[in-house]
Each structure stands twice: as C-alpha cells, then as structure tokens.
Design a protein around this nucleic acid. Structure first.
Ligand code: ZN
Ligand code: ZN
Ligand code: ZN
Ligand code: ZN
Lengths: 143, 143
DNA sequence: TTATCATTTGCAACTAAGTTGCATTTTTAT
DNA sequence: ATAAAAATGCAACTTAGTTGCAAATGATAA
C-alpha cells in the first residue's frame, strides 16, 4: 500500500472520511483488474481487522459517493469495481462488462466496442437513458 | 387458463411432466409482458395451493429445460421470462432487457435494436460468444 | 383400467448472506 | 486539546433460498 497520499486524496475527492478500513478496501479494488465480491475482498484483507458489516457499509459508501459501482451477477452476487480508470479518470456511466463463462470473472471494459448506443427513438415506447452491455465468453486468463 | 392443450404441448416439447403447478406457472408467465420474480408469481397464484419450494423447483426446471431464462436484477432478485415470443418462437439467446428506473419492471426485447453485435476480435484478448444488452430508462407504463 | 415406477410436491428444519441497533472508537473541525 | 459527527465492531436478528424425506401425482405399459 504505497502512495497513501493518492488514496487519501481519492477518498477526500468523493467526500469520504479517511479511515484505515476504507484505505485498505480502496487499495484492494485498485489492485484488481476484475470486479470483486464482498467475500473476495474480505479474504484479501487479513492483515488488519475488518468486520463484515464494516465492509458492507464501506462498499455501500463507495457506491453511494460514486467512487465505485456494483454489478449484480447471474448467481446473485454483488461485485464491486471502482469508477476510476487506471489513470484516475472516471469510467463512463455506460460501459461494458465482460463475464467469463469459465471462471466467472467480471471485467469492466471502459468503452462499448464497435457498438452503436441505442437512443430513445430506437425502442418503441421506451425511453432509453443509459445502458450496460454484458458480453459473455472466454477471458484472457482462461484461453 | 383457456387452451390447456397448448400449455401441455409446450411442457411436453421441453421434456417437462405436466402438472397443475407447472401449467399454472407457465400460464402466469405467458400472460405477463414483463419478467416476474418468485414473489410476483407466488402472489399471482392464489387459487391453487403452491408451496414456495415447488415454485423454486418449477422455475429451475423451466430454466434448465430452456423454456425460460432468468435475469438477475440490480437488487439481487431473479426474474423469470419465457424463451417464447408471443407467437411461440424461441427468443434469440442474445437479447435485450429494458429495465425501468422508476418501477423496476424488466422487459425482454426480442432484438438488439440498432446495435451491432461485438465479435471476438473487437475486444482484445476476450472471446465473445454471446451478449446481453441492458437498457435503462423509462418504460411505457411510467411515461 | 389398473399396477408399477419415476417424478413431483409439501412440509419442516436448516443455512447463510445480509441487516439492524447500539455502545465504543476514530476522524475532522475548532 | 475539545467536542461533534461519523465510522466501527459485535451480537442479535431477518429472511430468501435450500435440503431431506414421506406422501401424492403423473407416465407407461400390461
Ligand atoms: Zn476466465
Ligand atoms: Zn463495471
Ligand atoms: Zn416503469
Ligand atoms: Zn429476457
């Protein structure tokens, strides 16, 4: 957990108080290139004490503040990923999730590749305001 | 529940034994233009006895046989919809869900409108085999 | 039709993820 | 340093979903 400064900055930016639990959870999410479940995160944080309730509330706070978003999976789990790209920018609200059918890993892809975004007029009677694309297949790890 | 014959036929077609519970659940799903939760269905079936476990198992059987599919919602519910279009054809595996942000209703749209389907080559290192598009906005009922 | 066998159903007990309330600790502002 | 506000940990609780099993029902063929 190098660069505490950057982590603290991010929490401040999103109006969140800086606590060791939050720094650790943020760090865990930043180190991952896939979306993580509550259980995933809990199992990765063993060096400091972290109650399951605190983690639930931390993740809620991250989502509520806009720092992270959650994805409900096929098997009714919640996975969490930061709304930050690798370079600190915000991921676009409309993005694509790649779900590996072998390992169940979920990747956030920052753009919706080679896909036109449907607008209101495209679906009779439905007013479209945002979208999420879910691609299924085999991820790089499972090839 | 007119046309029992057609319902029975469908169950047979999918290799499912015909029981009153299954006929009733099938009928309920056929009458709905939105995907329904376990709780939705249970509350709609009051005239015959139907245990919650039986409904769970019935829905599992429908999904396993290919008669229905389930959608995990944002709030970690499962919604069920038939894989049949209004005219008895099978809905394409790749389809679009419209999720109303006001009433939470989920609609299955048979096609992916004005949207190009991404193929394997479009996402570096990921092999895409199927997709689900989720559109968010306001449904016709909530306008 | 009736007998047989496999499947489905209902019930009760159980499981475990997630929530709530509250006393204690930590953070931030003055 | 002090005080107010917010976050944390713990225990108790809730509740959706599952499991095992005995009884009921459906499919098949004599
Ligand atoms: Zn994989
Ligand atoms: Zn994402
Ligand atoms: Zn609506
Ligand atoms: Zn659907």
């Amino acid at each position: 957990m190098l660069s505490q400064k950057r982590h603290k900055n991010i929490l401040h930016q999103y109006g969140l108080k800086v606590t060791s639990a939050r720094l650790r959870v943020l760090d865990t999410l930043m180190r991952s290139n896939i979306a993580l479940s509550h259980a995933d995160i809990l199992s990765k944080i063993r060096d400091i004490q972290l109650d399951k309730v605190t983690l639930y509330r931390t993740l809620d706070a991250f989502v509520k503040s806009g720092l992270a978003h959650k994805v409900a999976t096929e098997d009714r789990n919640w996975l969490y990923a930061l709304d930050l790209s690798e370079h600190g920018d915000t991921v676009h609200r409309n993005h694509t999730h790649f779900i590996c059918d072998y390992c169940d890993r979920v990747y956030c892809l920052p753009v919706s590749p080679q896909v036109g975004i449907p607008d209101s007029s495209s679906v009779e009677g439905f007013e479209v305001r945002s979208h999420e694309f879910r691609l299924h297949g085999t991820c790089p790890q499972c090839h």
